[in-house]
Amino acid sequence: MSVSATLCSFLKNKGCSYDTIKHDYSFTSLDSAHRASIPVTQMAKAVVIHQKNKFTLAAVPAMNKVMLPQLAAITGSPARLAKEAEIKRIFGDCEEGAIPAIGQAYGLDVVWDDRLTEADDIYIEAGDHQSLIHLKRQQFQNLMKNKQHGEISCAPEELYDLSHY
């Protein structure tokens, strides 16, 4: 495979230049960062969220977990993780577990974590398990312009039960 046709078309239509980075097969975004020898803080992973009758994509640093109550507070809607079958329907031209953190290419609302502005370079899954898209910070920010954002993720060891919110 390589770069998903949907993502490629979207980036082209936005006039966004990017590099494609190849790496050994990986199953997670965190593993992709390790295999491509890039800092995990520069790898943005996609987490698909179901909110009411729609799906939202949360773009967060690969080493972090989404904090659903914080995401719900920003979007104003209760949130749960999407099911694999739901994700497959949305990202039909991507391999399972390799979805790009550019949800607007697939017609999804996007919420992104503010920590992604700290890196000069951002890498995202390209749609398969052996390719990454490399974007400069400004390109990523232009793609995320007017998208909701905030502190929506944390390190796994910092995650605690927030179900009372």
Rank of each mutant, 00 (worst) to 15 (best):
Y106V: 00
G107M: 01
G107W: 01
D109F: 07
V111T: 02
W112F: 12
W112S: 02
W112Y: 07
W112D: 00
D113Y: 02
D114L: 08
D114I: 04
R115S: 09
L116T: 07
T117E: 13
T117F: 14
E118Y: 06
E118H: 12
E118G: 00
A119L: 11
D120L: 14
D120H: 11
D120M: 11
D121R: 15
D121A: 10
D121H: 11
Y123R: 04
E125F: 05
E125W: 00
A126H: 00
G127Y: 04
G127N: 09
G127P: 11
G127V: 05
G127Q: 09
D128E: 02
D128Y: 12
H129D: 07
Q130I: 09
Q130T: 15
S131K: 10
I133D: 06
I133Y: 04
H134P: 12
H134T: 01
H134L: 10
K136M: 08
K136W: 03
Q138N: 09
Q141A: 08
L143S: 10
L143H: 05
M144Q: 07
K145G: 00
K145E: 12
K145M: 12
K147I: 08
K147D: 00
K147H: 05
Q148C: 13
H149Q: 08
H149T: 13
H149N: 12
G150H: 00
E151R: 15
E151S: 14
E151A: 06
